[in-house]
Write a protein that binds this DNA or RNA. Structure first.
Lengths: 184, 184
DNA sequence: ATTATCTATAGATCTATAGATAATGC
DNA sequence: ATTATCTATAGATCTATAGATAATGC
């Protein structure tokens, strides 16, 4: 086992990657520091040389998880309908561990430490701005942006929560169809 | 302290009421059985004479919490725009403990025991049906229903999670304005 | 000499159970 | 006699820390 500074950096990032996936899948309270370390191939004792506290990992993991929507966010600038179609999709619903942390953890965010909520707020604001720009010269562009963003987050979160897979698919397909109609 | 059967029923309901509020505020993992019992004026030892397990309380509390949106759900039948305006409101956002358990716990639901998810799914299906009926004789009524329901749940969940109160209000006001425009 | 990780553990939880206490209800 | 609630606790967590071990890096 390596102990160099370069190894430490790689170790640190491996811990955060495991956490970013598991927090989305099980919620912020759904996995322990010990289990995260074990899954990263480490033992619990080393954790606090990497993070001041569990909350510090929560914040780092959330920020890392946000990278998983950067592609979609970039696509919003040039092809908003395609970006939204990628977001409101069955494959996104079925891949919570690598999907958007906003739809996966919006309830957890409301109860999270301030530092995490601030990173969350900044990203939400940015996405809403991009969505509003996708309706250029329309008076109610910002209202539409608020509705579409709420639909994206809400439909994926709901589609994951309902037990009936048919209804789950209907939520995704219906919500997407209605949103795309707003671009006609 | 009373020990009659009538008292036991009242005690049982008091426990469920406390849980229904606290689960919405702090998440399903956010409060312990002991703290729930304490808040109901009891001690932890009596809990398992009322519930087979913690999960059983989760299911009962979620079903009780759903009663807090029955008024809104009834209003959907006769005055859908008013019902939606009540749901997508700052007062609903600021009262998570007595608000809709769907927007408060949609992420928790995705990770909840099957019995809870089934009660959840049934209610979601009913609300979507009512929303679809609010666009009579429109071909894409069900698509609109999926989008509007996702917007309602998503906007309230997002408005609670963002830290900036101005953005929080904008999400609510913008999403509501855009939804109401669909009824014009 | 410093430090990245490990083993071990303290101290604080949390769920669930056992057995005592004190009331109800036949 | 039954039972609703209480006190007490077992056993399994979980976060965080202390001190040992073994590698890096001056």
């Amino acid at each position: 086992m390596g102990h160099s500074q370069a190894d430490k950096l790689a170790t640190h990032q491996r811990i955060v990657q495991v956490a970013a996936r598991r927090f989305r899948e099980r919620g912020i309270d759904g996995i322990s520091v010990g289990d995260i370390m074990k899954e990263a191939g480490l033992t619990v004792g080393g954790f606090y040389k990497h993070f001041e506290s569990r909350d510090a990992l929560v914040t780092e993991a959330f920020i890392l998880a946000l990278q998983d929507i950067e592609q979609i966010q970039d696509a919003l600038k040039t092809a908003p309908q395609r970006a939204i179609s990628t977001y409101v999709s069955e494959s996104h619903r079925s891949n919570v561990g690598r999907g958007c942390p906003i739809s996966a953890m919006v309830n957890d965010m409301a109860r999270a430490p301030d530092a995490t909520r601030e990173a969350f707020t900044e990203r939400v604001g940015g996405i809403i701005d991009l969505l509003a720009e996708s309706f250029p010269e329309e008076e109610d562009a910002r209202d539409k942006a608020m509705m579409i963003f709420s639909t994206c987050v809400g439909s994926i979160a709901l589609a994951r929560a309902v037990k009936d897979p048919i209804l789950s698919n209907q939520i995704i397909e219906g919500a997407l169809a209605a949103v795309l109609k707003m671009y006609e």
